[in-house]
């Protein structure tokens, strides 16, 4: 599915499968002068091609950690490395995000007035590259996700599962290294949820992508290579005690 994509040249080159793609050291996100600790001293390593599930109760800091990994938020403490490069040396977070990450959200966040195809193309607006090639790539992604007959439909005319598949295609358009998914099945029924997970897992394996997924659904985390438990902003080393 990684077709030619001339618009983006990666600033950090890929490494071998099994190497660390992400390394988080003592990551903290504190508010109110340290009184609120959304994330507090997280140390995690994610390897190339790995599927990691971040699980924990609501408010434990999973999404905040995901946002920090995806450069949507800045940690107030600690260090993160992407293939060995410290985040602190990234000069253009937007460009870095575009080159290396694909985002999938629980509530899809598709633009209601755009067709499925246009929604997939949206992340490429402002990029260099052939419009025709980008369109063909978006069409290829939607077809691969079984939406070849729904490309011209606006999100309002698609089912929840179809919308999330459009969002998956959108997350892949810039040929990312890591998919960051925040409760991607949270708004879907069990059948659609299973379908979306199958698709996501298939794409991951086929393309050697790394997936970091926030979820609190056991059936979702069960599909992950590794589950990272969180509680009160910290890693939960004994999750069994809290179940």
């Amino acid at each position: 599915m990684n077709g030619p994509h001339s618009g983006l040249r990666k600033t950090v080159s890929s490494s071998r499968p099994g190497d660390a793609i992400l390394r988080l050291e003592d990551i903290a996100l504190h508010f109110d002068e340290g009184r609120t600790k959304a994330v507090n001293g997280i140390d995690v390593e994610v390897r190339e091609g790995e599927f990691v599930a971040l699980v924990g109760p609501s408010g434990c800091g999973k999404s905040s950690l995901l946002n920090i990994i995806g450069t949507l938020d800045s940690a107030t403490g600690g260090r993160i490395y992407f293939r060995g490069q410290p985040y602190s040396t990234i000069s253009d977070a937007s460009l870095f995000r575009r080159q290396h990450f694909g985002f999938i959200f629980q509530s899809f966040h598709l633009i209601p007035t755009l067709s499925a195809l246009e929604n997939v193309i949206v992340p490429t607006i402002g990029c260099a590259g052939s419009a025709k090639a980008l369109k063909e790539r978006a069409q290829g992604l939607l077809s691969a996700l079984g939406l070849q007959d729904r490309m011209g439909h606006e999100p309002g005319k698609l089912s929840g599962g179809e919308r999330q598949r459009v969002a998956i295609a959108r997350s892949l358009i810039n040929d990312p290294d890591i998919i960051l998914a925040d409760e991607p099945t949270g708004s879907l029924d069990s059948i659609n949820a299973a379908e979306v997970l199958d698709l996501l897992d298939g794409i991951r394996k086929e393309n050697g992508l790394t997936v970091v997924m926030v979820t609190h659904a056991p059936e979702v985390s069960a599909r992950a290579d590794r589950v990272v438990h969180m509680r009160d902003g910290k890693l939960d080393t004994n999750p069994a005690e809290h179940t």
């Binding site: 995806g70 949507l72 253009d92 937007s94 460009l95 995000r97 575009r98 080159q99 990450f101 985002f103 959200f105 966040h109 633009i111 949206v122 992340p123 607006i125 402002g126 959108r170 810039n174």
Partner: peptide, 16 residues
């Protein structure tokens, strides 16, 4: 606001 947040998350640059 949320849509702009999505665009930023998708890698849109601030100048775009």
């Amino acid at each position: 606001t949320r849509e702009i947040g999505v665009l930023l998350a998708l890698g849109w640059q601030r100048r775009t």
